[in-house]
Structures are given as structure tokens and as C-alpha cells.
Design a protein around this nucleic acid. Structure first.
Length: 823
RNA sequence: GCCAAGGUGGCGGAAUGGUAGACGCACAGGGCUUAAAACCCUGAGAAGGCCUAAAAACUUUCGUGUGAGUUCGAGUCUCACCCUUGGUACCA
């Protein structure tokens, strides 16, 4: 038997595809239906790991299958080439980040090619190339012109390790998403993209998308829409409207129970009260205490504040607010459990119906006034301890109002907005999402195309000066200062172009800006006059299917959707949702079932498996390891690739048997009906399961078919050819080799997907049950009637025995499938 | 805490409300071989019964996290609970 030499087979196949130029997509081809299949482009980290294989090799199966099914498939690739690792590696080894990046890309291109992935490299996009980032910059200037990019001072998250600010989305559990160090907070003037302007549309757009509910829910939660009201509380002893406290609440129906007000330490009123010398009417009695509290909390981050579950706060002595519903005077507190960055930075506290307010009220001995009755009755004046679990069950829910003036007795939900009107408030909507902070104090990124005039006012750099090149005379050792500030050339460039006293922006853009539009560039990657091609965008967008990692759900995926909507509003693109389908891929775990990590020593190098068993075996194993449409975690079985290799060897032997003199091996021997049926079944299943990204069951269908074919004394070459075509997307190299052995024309990858022959079913097996339990089966002609089935079934000894002489009360007949006797 | 997804053999997993465990791994027995590897065949959810020297075959009951329910029939639908994973967290 000829050895299955995967090395030479892979080489020959890849050379053949290159020669035939199989994977350059003609974007203007009108004869076939376009299909844009996108997989997240990699960061050029160096070596391909198993995750890369999982991302590229498995989606490649689908790209190949779609082509065979007659689609014009765009399956592009590129590199998300700006970013911190390059800079950090460069600092560590005293290299140029650019050189490091380009060396890695070169290496990765070869590795990606080695897996037989059918990417169209002619459309490669590399985000760190000026020809690309010029358009990232151009978009930024457009956003600036349309007030979607803003320069402003705000509290920001700061990573002390990476020496840069981070977007909210990049803070995971209070730690830097990249390096894991605890983030700090600073007040800085930075660039923001106003993603909050799009909160409502980002939310609504989700409804129509056929994505998995968990992805949509994660985005909805991130956007965090809350509907409620803004209500104004006057300050006692003050006439006029200036000294009012505005609160945001989702429960205006509980306002009669608001027994105090809480302000965030950063609330402007506090600064005003503390500002000695102002003739503010109510004077703060405990000036120093409040000042000290504000000072301590200012040193804590939001996270540190929330870690301390014990509530802290200080009463603003001598200053009272008036509850607009009860007209009662209520105290005002400053406490850090109220966040300045959400709502109005002030809340009305309803301790009877809000857990946090309740805790605070207990600690500071404040009145707790129930205004909503739960299932049972409420006796006012109970001490809170006695309320116990019963109170727990209803205290945050809606219900019948009590102690609420004219609203007493009404349903709180129904009169909610009447109460808002009663106290002169207004409906308001709040979002949890914050604007996207996109400045980074780092070197290896896209320079922000902004210059400041002599007054410090920002100006966008006009298109004629783009790309605004990243300077190279830079000391990029992180100091907390933007590395670009050390460039002489950049300063000179600005002076020369704009005049004396003008200064450059030294920050670079968050790399998520680069990756928010790369899929548009694939359509026209080399054009120097346009970011993409309008006609091609019309034809190819939105992207049919986007495959990627679940870690991007609230980052990249949200940013890309925002970009698309913003560009749509600028009339630059014709659709406002970029991705029709989205599939989050799972994670390959180490053989020990743990996440692969160097520290655990369970990291596997795919190259070793490729070398030993071949790329095709690795591809099939990854397809087989678990459902690709669910973001599950799949442990890598060390015997898995070897098992797939065995499968491929069995395929090879089957095909070789055709050439054996003892075998008839000709198309003229025909195809027996059961094989015809097995083929049809496999064709349908491989195709349908792949459409659902269930490659595991698609592979198992191929295995089942192989098992059936192996059991045959002879296999016609026609059948063998069909099998090879079905195998081609999964094991592209071996299939090419076998196709040649079978004397097939051209490349197996150009062969149309076979059509499942209409199965001619002459007989059906009908399962016979008694009381829903299987007691046997009868095989009858396909056109047999219910009466025929009953007659045959009642002759089965086990059925007779189970019935025990009793007549069935009724029978349920599912034609051609089930006959159930109910006794 | 809240939201979402999920819980099926030793393992990964499969099952439009209709034979649970496809396909594969690991395992066991056998074949081939001087031998081993490779390869091929067979077996296998659990507990019992019958027949036996023993086994096979045959057969019964139980079995998809737990408990109830709907249904002729439930892994699948409904309710409650437990657990796992992911997201989020003082967001008023």
C-alpha cells in the first residue's frame, strides 16, 4: 500500500491551488451569488497557536463548502497590526516595533498557508500601514467635524503597567484587560468617541439580528438602558430654582417613601457648599467633616468604593431638602455608594424599597417609610428586623401604594407617570454605557490626526496631509507621557505645516479603532483615493457571517457596530449593521481540561501535530472536537488527531481498493440502493450541519458514510468521487490527492457539491410500542395502511405477551414511524 | 445578587415530542503476526432474571442534575429547586 505521505501531498496540493489561482475572489462577478465570510483577523503575535487554527481552519471548511455550492465567496484575511505587544517586545529586546511586527506577519503568513486555508491574500489588510491608517485617521477627522469625537476632561481608567488610559470596555473586573494589573483612576483631558449618542440605536438594532440570544443580551446589558424620571428636590430655606437637587430614579412611584437624599462626593453642590466665602444661604454645619470625607473618597477608585460593602457617608448638617411629594424636610447625605458618573450623581433614597438605601438608613438610623404593600398587609411602625423574609419578598417590587397621599390604594406601576407629573418631574432614560475613550499614551498605534493652535484649540488635520505619519525618532519607553512627545520631527512637521506655536496631538488611537472598519477595506484594499468602494459595498455588505471570539462581544463587536452606524449617518456606507450573522467560537482547553497557559505548562503547539499527522488531520479534529456554533470549552484529546489520521488513512485505502485487480471498480457496476441512500443522506447532512456551523456532526456523517462504504465488496469510482468531493472542504489536501488518483479533472475544489438523489424508499420500519415502550417493530411497504400495521404488529409475540390478552383502549399511529397501543 | 447559556456513559459529544447514548476517544476480548506495532473483527449505560460447567443468545427493571406536571409517548415542553460555566455588578 502506498504510504499516505501528508508532507508531499500538502505541498503538491497547495502549489496546485496557487497555480490555478483558486482563491482570488472576483468581487465584480455577477454570475454567482456573493457571500462574505469573515473571521476576525489576527494580531501578529508571532507563532500560530491552537486558537488560531481553530479560528481559521474551521471557518475555512465553510468557505470551501460554499464555493463548491456555487457561491462567490469572499474570505479575506489581514493583520490587526498596531498594538501594545509589539511595543513591549520592542522595549524588552531593544527592537523597532515595526520590524518586530513585520517579521511576525511574515512568519504567520506561512503558517496560515500551511493549514491549507483558502484566504484571498490579494486583499490583505494591515492596519499599521499608512495606506490603511490614513483612512482610520480620515474617519476620525470626520467624527471630529460632526462632533462625534470630543476632547474633554473626565475621570479615566489608567493602567499603571501599560502606562496608558483604557476604555471602560477594557477594564475587566477592575483590572486591565491586557496585562491584568489593577486600574487606577485619573482626571485627564482625552479624546472620546460619542458612542452614547448611539446607545438607543445600538440597542434597537439588536432585535432584528439573528444572533444567539446570549450575545445580544450581553450587549444589551452593556448598553444598560434604564427608563425612569428626573425629579427635582428643592433645598429648604432657599427661594428660586438654582439650588435644586435633581435626582434620577427608575422608581418615581416610591417618592412618598424618599426619606433622605444622597449625593455623590463629586456632586457640584458639595463643592459649592465647601467653597468658603460664597454667600450660600444654608450654611454647612460640619464643613470640615464633609471636606475630609470627600477627600478620602476622592482617593479611591469606583472599584475600591464598591469593594467596601459597608456603607459610608456624612450628613450635610444644616442643609435640608424638601420632598416634593410630601413637602417634608429630609436630610441630605454625601456617600460614595452614589456614583457621579451615572444619572445626575444624586439619588432620592427610599430605604423601604431599595436594598442599598435600606442598608444606609439602618446604619445612620434614618426613617424607613414603606409606601408599597406587598402580598400581605403592612403595619407601619414595625422595626425593620421584624419584617424579615416577608419584606424581602416584595420590598423592591411594584404593588399597591400606601402612605402616598392621593395615590394611596392605587397600583404603583399604573400611576408611576402620574406621580412624576404630580411632583413636576420628567421622564428620563439613562444608559450604563460610557463614551469610548480612544486616546492612548503609547507609541505603536495610529496617530490621532489633530493639531492644536496657539490657544490650544484642536483642529483636524485635513485630508491632503493624510496619512499623518507615525514619527520614527521616538523614545517609546513608557513614562506616562505619550512617547510621541519625544519626537523632534513631529514638532517640526507641525510648525512647518501650521505655523509657529502650533502643537501636535501626542496620543495614538486605541487599536479597536483600527479594527472597527477593516472589513470595509477588504473590498478595495489598495485604493489611495477611497477607504473602500461604494458599488462593492452595496453588493457585499452586510457581511453574511462573522466568526470570532466571545471576548469581543462588548468590545470589538460593539465598536464596529457603532462605527458602521456613524459612517451610515455620514452617508459613507449604505447599511448600518455590519454583520448579519455572528458566531462566537468556543475555546480549546489543554488536555487537562484547563485553559492553556504557560504557567500551567499545558500549552500545545499545533505544529507538532501537523508535522506528525498532517494539516488535514488537525483540521478535521478541530472540526470534530465540539459544536462550532456554541462558545463552549473543549479539552484537547491527545489521541484525537491520531484518530482523525486513522480516518483519513481508511479513506485512502478505500479509494485505493478501486485500483485493485480483484475489484471491479468501475462506474458501470452501478450503485446499490442502500449506498445511494447513504450517499444522499451524507450529502444533505454535511451540507446542512455545516450551515449551522455544526462541523462535528458533519464530520461524523462522513465517518458513517465511510463505514457503510467499507462494508461493501466493491465501490464504484463514481461513488468514490462523490466521497472525495464531500471530504474536500474538511481535508482539502488529501481530497485533492485522491481526486487526482481517481482521474478527476481539474481541482477537487472546483467540483460542484453533489446533489442528494431522491431516496426511493420501498419499505419502512414501524416501531411498535405498548404504553409508549418499544416492544418490537414491523417492516412494511411504504404505502401500507394503519390497518396493515396493526395486523402485523399484533402478530409480534412480545406485543401479544405485553398486551396479555387485553384489548388496547386506543392506538396512536404516526404514519410510517410509530404504532403505539395504549392499554 | 442580577442576566444568559447549560447539566446525557470513563471522556468529547449525538438525538424536527417518537428505538437515548450517533460518531469518535479510551477500555476489554479475539484475529493477523515468530513477536510487537499497525491493521481487522467483536463487545460494552446500570442492576437483575433465565439458561449454563462457563459464556453467548434471550429477557426484565431502572436510566439524560433533583422533584412534580402536561402527553398515548418527555433528554426535548411547563413549574419549582440544586449545580456548572459565561456576562455583569452599589447603575438608583
Amino acid at each position: 500500500m502506498e504510504k499516505y505521505d501528508h508532507g508531499s501531498i500538502e505541498k503538491a496540493a497547495q502549489e496546485k491551488w496557487a497555480e490555478l489561482n483558486l482563491y482570488t475572489t472576483n468581487l465584480t462577478d455577477e454570475s454567482k451569488e456573493p457571500y462574505y465570510l469573515l473571521t476576525e483577523f489576527p494580531y501578529p503575535s508571532g507563532d500560530l497557536h491552537i486558537g488560531h487554527w481553530y479560528a481559521f481552519a474551521v471557518t475555512d471548511i465553510y468557505a470551501r463548502l460554499l464555493r463548491q455550492r456555487g457561491k462567490n465567496v469572499l474570505f479575506p484575511i489581514g493583520f490587526d497590526a498596531f498594538g501594545l505587544p509589539a511595543e513591549n517586545a520592542a522595549i524588552k529586546n531593544n527592537l523597532d516595533p515595526k520590524e518586530w511586527t513585520y517579521t511576525n506577519m511574515e512568519r504567520m503568513r506561512e503558517q496560515i498557508a500551511s493549514m491549507g486555508a483558502s484566504f484571498d491574500w490579494s486583499k490583505e489588510v494591515v492596519t499599521c500601514e499608512p495606506s490603511y491608517y490614513q483612512w482610520t485617521q480620515w474617519f476620525f477627522t470626520k467624527f471630529f467635524e460632526h462632533k462625534l469625537a470630543e476632547h474633554r476632561e473626565a475621570p479615566v481608567k489608567w493602567c499603571p503597567e501599560d502606562q496608558t488610559v483604557l476604555a471602560n470596555e477594557q477594564v475587566i473586573d477592575g483590572h486591565c484587560e491586557r496585562c491584568g494589573s489593577a486600574v487606577e483612576e485619573k482626571r485627564l483631558t482625552q479624546w472620546f468617541l460619542k458612542i452614547t449618542d448611539y446607545a438607543e440605536r445600538l440597542l434597537n438594532g439588536l432585535d432584528a439580528l439573528p444572533w444567539r440570544e446570549e450575545i445580544k443580551e450581553a450587549q444589551r446589558a452593556w448598553i444598560g438602558k434604564s427608563e425612569g424620571a428626573k425629579l427635582k428636590f428643592k433645598i429648604a430655606g432657599v427661594v428660586g430654582s438654582e439650588q435644586e437637587i435633581e435626582v434620577f430614579t427608575t422608581r418615581p412611584d416610591t417618592i412618598f417613601g424618599a426619606t433622605y437624599i444622597v449625593l455623590a462626593p463629586e456632586h457640584p453642590l458639595i463643592a459649592e457648599l465647601l467653597n468658603v466665602g460664597t454667600s450660600y444661604v444654608p450654611t454647612l454645619g460640619n464643613h470640615e467633616v464633609v471636606k475630609a470625607y470627600v477627600k478620602t473618597t476622592a482617593q479611591k477608585t469606583e472599584r475600591e468604593r464598591s469593594e467596601n460593602k459597608e456603607k459610608t457617608g456624612v450628613n450635610l448638617e444644616g442643609v435640608m431638602a424638601i420632598n416634593p411629594a410630601t413637602k417634608e424636610e429630609i436630610p441630605i447625605f454625601v456617600a460614595d455608594y452614589v456614583l457621579a458618573s451615572y444619572g445626575t450623581g444624586a439619588v432620592m433614597a427610599v430605604p423601604a424599597h431599595d436594598e442599598r438605601d435600606f442598608e444606609f438608613a439602618q446604619k445612620f438610623n434614618l426613617p424607613i417609610k414603606p409606601v408599597i404593600m406587598g402580598g400581605g398587609s403592612v403595619q407601619i411602625g414595625w422595626s425593620i428586623e421584624k419584617w424579615g423574609d416577608e419584606w424581602n419578598d416584595w420590598y423592591e417590587k411594584a404593588g399597591k401604594l400606601i402612605n402616598s397621599g392621593e395615590f394611596t390604594g392605587k397600583n404603583s406601576e399604573e400611576v408611576k407617570w402620574d406621580i412624576v407629573a404630580f411632583v413636576g418631574g420628567e421622564k428620563a432614560t439613562q444608559y450604563r454605557i460610557r463614551d469610548w475613550l480612544i486616546s492612548r499614551q503609547r507609541y505603536w498605534g495610529c496617530p490621532i490626526p489633530i493639531v492644536y493652535d496657539t490657544l490650544g484649540k484642536p483642529h483636524a488635520i485635513s485630508a491632503e496631509h493624510l496619512p499623518w505619519l507615525l514619527p520614527t525618532d521616538v523614545d517609546f519607553t513608557p513614562t506616562g507621557q505619550a512617547p510621541l512627545a519625544s519626537s523632534k520631527e513631529l514638532k517640526e512637521r507641525v510648525t512647518k505645516l501650521f505655523g509657529e506655536g502650533w502643537t501636535p496631538e501626542y496620543d495614538t488611537l486605541d487599536t479597536f479603532a483600527d479594527s472597527s472598519w477593516y472589513f470595509l477595506r477588504y473590498l478595495n484594499p489598495k485604493d489611495v483615493h477611497n477607504f473602500s468602494d461604494a458599488a462593492l459595498m452595496k453588493k457585499w455588505l452586510p457581511i453574511n457571517r462573522y466568526s470570532g471570539g466571545s471576548e469581543h462581544t462588548t468590545m470589538h463587536l460593539l465598536y464596529a457596530r457603532f462605527f458602521m452606524k456613524a459612517l451610515y449617518d455620514l452617508a459613507l456606507v449604505s447599511v448600518d449593521e455590519p454583520f448579519t450573522e455572528r458566531f462566537n467560537r468556543g475555546l480549546i482547553l489543554g488536555p487537562d481540561g484547563q485553559k492553556m497557559s504557560k504557567s500551567k505548562g499545558n500549552v500545545l503547539n499545533p505544529d507538532e501535530f501537523v508535522q506528525k499527522y498532517g494539516a488535514d488531520a488537525v483540521r478535521i479534529y478541530l472540526a470534530f472536537i465540539g459544536p462550532y456554533n456554541e462558545p463552549g470549552s473543549y479539552p484537547w484529546n491527545l489521541d484525537g488527531v491520531a484518530a482523525m489520521r486513522k480516518f483519513l488513512e481508511r479513506v485512502t485505502r478505500l479509494i485505493e481498493r478501486l485500483g485493485h485487480p480483484m475489484s471491479k471498480s468501475a462506474e458501470d457496476i452501478g450503485c446499490p440502493a442502500h449506498i445511494q441512500q447513504a450517499l444522499g443522506h451524507a450529502i444533505t447532512k454535511v451540507s446542512d450541519d455545516s450551515d449551522r456551523f455544526k462541523f462535528n456532526t458533519a464530520v461524523s456523517a462522513l465517518m458513517t458514510l465511510l463505514n457503510a462504504l467499507e462494508a461493501e465488496p466493491t465501490v464504484s469510482s463514481g461513488t468514490a468521487k462523490i466521497f472525495t468531493i464531500l471530504l474536500a472542504p474538511f481535508a482539502p489536501h488529501l481530497a485533492e490527492h485522491l481526486w487526482e488518483k481517481l482521474g478527476g479533472e481539474g481541482s477537487v475544489h472546483q467540483q460542484p457539491w453533489p446533489v442528494a438523489a431522491e431516496a426511493v424508499i420501498s419499505e419502512r420500519e414501524i416501531v411498535v410500542q405498548v404504553n409508549g415502550k418499544r416492544r418490537g417493530s414491523v417492516t412494511l411497504p411504504a404505502d401500507a395502511s394503519e390497518a396493515d400495521a396493526v395486523t402485523a404488529a399484533r402478530a409480534i409475540p412480545t406485543v401479544v405477551a405485553t398486551l396479555g390478552g387485553k384489548e388496547p383502549v386506543r392506538q396512536v399511529y404516526v404514519p410510517g414511524k410509530i404504532l403505539n397501543f395504549v392499554v
